[in-house]
Write a protein that binds this DNA or RNA. Structure first.
Lengths: 193, 193
DNA sequence: GACAGTGAGACGTTATTTGTCTTATTGTCT
DNA sequence: AGACAATAAGACAAATAACGTCTCACTGTC
């Protein structure tokens, strides 16, 4: 799993072309030019063309997202703090994502599908892989899975449609929310605070 | 010459689509959707399609440019002040034009042609129509034409390739420049100060 | 009810994009 | 030097998208 630098260049190119023109307007050739790679090479890297390429881009982006997220969760003091940081940081990342907000503006249909119906299971799967280890000390495995899925769904929902009541991007608001609606459900299973 | 509001909507749509995707990526259909107009209607308004439409857009933009420019030249105290304001204001408009700078970034070739080889004669023609009347009190007609053309060429050149020496967007710098290089050439013809 | 203007969309025609393949070139390794 | 793998360049047919023209039905206005 050594990441091929040319492959990364192509993915970067796809991303920036997309940010400039939107998914619908980008051609394979645009991406090749941006990446400084010939069409033949791109098809050798991603046999199947656009679909496969953008699929790979989504996979990479999601993994990067959770990699960055995990990095912000290291010094968590306790279980509650861990969950609060997780939620706040995830929200900050989503809101700050240039690429994402551009696509949400220009092609809401595709991107919403990616965050809800089609893509959500994948997101939950990756979230689980990254985050369950972190709550492993606090909860039994089964409960960890349930918790991570719940948090993922909540963050996405509050990101797509901000609430008047709660701002999961704000630490205090998120703490209150977690304390009130999340912790109680998992309190009985908690193996340590 | 009553400006048809639907026609203006289409031109606005063309402009904003262009700003979003660049000239090369815009389709007639994009523009129709943005303007809320059917394809048939657009072709009835601009028989000839894209070429005619964008030609009309250029014409309108240039006229608007000089209309706005003229509005800033009313209270000019004397000849020198008139020229300085003219140059400074033109530079400010060019530099502030969102549409223009976006297109310069994404399709330099087309836009440069529009500002130099192909389009410059037209720009000079419109500039003459708008500005010669304003210098008419100071100069004989023939000299007015020569002056306006000279200023147009200078502004465009300094806009496209900013100088280290002179900033025509700055009033003081522009005044010095006008005094040094422009006024002397026309001094002999001046009918009043 | 005639009328001009419009939106929807079918249509054949071009242009563009796609995906595959071949060829020549480049740099690497032995 | 010569074999080798990886690539850029670009030819090519097939698929797709965009173009420009047309017809027709609909909506207001006189």
């Amino acid at each position: 799993m050594i990441p091929d630098p040319a492959e990364q260049r192509v993915l970067d190119a796809a991303k920036s072309c997309c940010a400039r023109w939107g998914l619908a307007k980008v051609t394979i050739e645009d991406i090749c030019n941006e990446a400084g790679v010939s069409r033949a090479t791109l098809y050798r890297m991603f046999p199947g063309g656009k679909d496969v390429l953008f699929e790979a881009l989504r996979v990479r982006d999601i993994e990067d997202f959770f990699t960055r997220l995990s990095a912000h969760l290291d010094g968590a003091a306790d279980f509650e703090d861990l969950l609060v940081r997780c939620v706040v940081q995830a929200m900050a990342e989503l809101r700050g994502d240039q690429h994402l907000s551009m696509m949400l503006a220009s092609e809401p249909g595709d991107i919403l599908g990616e965050l809800t119906v089609d893509g959500l299971p994948r997101i939950i799967r990756v979230a689980t892989a990254f985050l369950v280890p972190l709550v492993d000390g606090y909860l039994p495995r089964r409960e960890g899975d349930r918790l991570v899925e719940l948090l993922a769904r909540l963050v996405i929902s509050y990101f797509l449609a901000p609430s008047e009541q709660v701002d999961l991007g704000d630490t205090e608001s998120a703490r209150t929310f977690i304390r009130t609606f999340v912790l109680p459900a998992f309190q009985p299973s908690l193996t340590r605070s």
